[in-house]
């Protein structure tokens, strides 16, 4: 795959963890880009376009995930995905550090 590889760490702030609906939204959004999207947690790396894979990451609140995006539209993809992860959940939560 041609294009840059970009990485960024994101902490899950949703008190319910990275649960089904945001995972679905994430996988769906990731699939719109040509770039490959990998999501890692403590050495486990999964395909960010796969909702099932994301489920197995079991990212509860406070988990740090690393996104790794490679491809021609990597820049757009990464910023869109990070924005999605950082979007406040339905309930009001404040960002906290690890």
């Amino acid at each position: 795959m041609n294009g840059p590889t970009l990485k960024q760490n994101v902490v899950i702030n949703n008190p319910q963890g990275f649960h089904l609906r945001p995972m679905g939204a994430f996988a769906q959004l990731a699939s719109r880009f040509e770039s490959s999207v990998k999501v890692s947690r403590e050495g486990q790396t999964v395909n960010g376009k796969s909702i099932l894979d994301l489920m197995l990451l079991a990212a509860v609140q406070g988990t740090e995930l690393m996104l790794e995006v490679t491809g021609s539209d990597a820049e757009d993809a990464l910023s869109a995905l990070v924005r999605l992860l950082n979007a406040p959940p339905e309930e009001e939560t404040t960002a906290s550090s690890v």
């Binding site: 609906r21 679905g24 996988a27 999964v46 395909n47 376009k49 909702i51 099932l52 894979d53």
Partner: peptide
């Protein structure tokens, strides 16, 4: 509806 939306995503999941 989102539950079924998630199901549909799983059914087309590349890893699966």
């Amino acid at each position: 509806g989102a539950i079924f939306g998630a199901h549909a995503l799983m059914l087309t999941d590349p890893t699966l």
